[in-house]
Amino acid sequence: MEKEEVKQKIYALVEKSIGKKKLKSSDIQKAVSAEAGISRDEVKDALRELIDNGTLIYTYFGGSFVEIPPKE
């Protein structure tokens, strides 16, 4: 699976969880690797790019989560 496709899956998962459950990085790795049949390292790598380019951000609310940044 292409990295761009993995990124889209990650973003879609985070977007879908808004208002329902805050996702941890490991939740995303587990869910996307199971769904796409790829290794957790591949998901981690794609997630890292999404964080580095600001598409997703880390937040802290009693634990660290991955979320979509708030609109300015």
Partner: peptide, 15 residues
């Protein structure tokens, strides 16, 4: 807590 930090990092800054 909250969303403060520097780009690419998930730690190091405590809001």
């Amino acid at each position: 807590g909250g969303i403060v930090g520097v780009r690419g990092y998930g730690g190091g800054v405590i809001g």
